[in-house]
Simulated assay, not measured.
Amino acid sequence: MGCDGGTIPKRHELVKGPRKVEKVDKNAELVAQWYYCTLSQEKLSRPIVACELGRLYNKDAVIEFLLDKSSDKAPMAAASHIKGIKNVIELNLTDNPAWNGDKGNTKGDKYDDIQCARFICPVVGLEMNGRHRFCFLKKCGCVFSERALKEIKAEVCHKCGGPFQEEDLIILNGTKEDVEVLKKRMEDRRLKSKLEKKSKKSKAAESVSQADTTEDAPGPSKVKPGKEDVSINSGEKRQIVFSKSTEVNESSSSSGKASKSSSGSTKRSITASERKSEAYRSIFTSHCSAKRSKEESSNWIIHTAYYF
């Protein structure tokens, strides 16, 4: 107070020499990369996706980022290359049976083993905690360690059995050199897809234009029949009409004869039925012998609602 005793110098003023740069804790960096979402900084939880540069995200965070179209949206360097949901791949991860999660440390008085990871390699069994290099396939999303690829060399996925190429392999949380290689592949892939789309559009436009030209072009001339053809055709039509009329008359006459013959047959059948014996006719209920007299018939009483 009052600057009566002078000022007390600090240590960096007394000690001469280059100042040491503080190093980032490697364990903390690994935990941030392999246990937390790169976009929302929340714990990774299924469904987990990865971009074409090998960074891990929660799928919900990516969807929220893509749906946010507000002008106040902060630019995210970690997700600037993600233009749509097709730019991320959902990962097919294998659970670690030795991982208990946060069940054992509910009060915060227990030591958390950072080295114990939630997921492991399905082939070798290495834990996905950042100590070992892991990769995934772009086609199927299966995740396994790089050691598994070196020990078991195959052109088929070790987990699902799907075929893959070297370009389909994407390293998770790789070094700067790995990220540069993956970025170049991503740009080449997107440029190729754009060129393919343009070629398809141009082909479709050409096909439409060709169809229009074929419709507008004059086709083969259709020769109309002259007067002579019309006269010939009319003569043929008259002959046909005449033949048809004769056929109709013949059919009507034949139908008349048939009707007459049918009426004669019905009369004959009626006379034959009349000649049948009374014994044969008494079998049926329509015969007079089958009918009862009033004395033989019973008296029926009809009950109405007013009877009771």
Rank of each mutant, 00 (worst) to 15 (best):
R147E: 15
R185T: 10
G104H: 13
I114A: 06
G141A: 09
N96W: 07
F119S: 00
D178R: 04
R131Q: 11
V123S: 02
G130Q: 05
D178Y: 10
K107I: 09
L149Y: 01
R190H: 07
A148S: 15
K138F: 08
R190A: 04
R131M: 11
K176R: 12
S145T: 01
E155G: 15
I120R: 02
A148K: 03
C160E: 11
F134P: 05
E151M: 11
I120T: 05
K150Q: 14
T175H: 12
K138M: 07
C116R: 04
L191V: 03
I171Y: 11
G161S: 07
C135R: 04
D178H: 15
K150S: 13
E146V: 13
E146G: 02
C160P: 13
A98S: 14
E187W: 03
E177T: 14
L182S: 15
F134C: 06
C160K: 08
G108H: 06
K176Q: 14
V156A: 07
E177H: 13
T106C: 06
N129I: 05
E155P: 01
N100G: 11
G104K: 14
E155C: 10
E177S: 14
N173F: 05
R131Y: 14
V179Q: 15
Y111K: 14
D168C: 01
T106W: 13
D102R: 11
L182V: 04
R185P: 02
P122L: 04
E146F: 09
K110N: 09
V181F: 15
R118G: 01
G108S: 06
K159G: 05
L126S: 08
K183S: 14
G141Q: 02
Q165R: 05
G108M: 06
V156D: 08
K150R: 12
L182A: 15
A98I: 01
N105M: 08
G130W: 03
C157G: 03
L126R: 02
K159M: 13
P163H: 12
E167T: 12
L126F: 11
N96C: 06
V123P: 00
N100Y: 02
G130C: 00
L172H: 02
E151I: 14
N96Y: 06
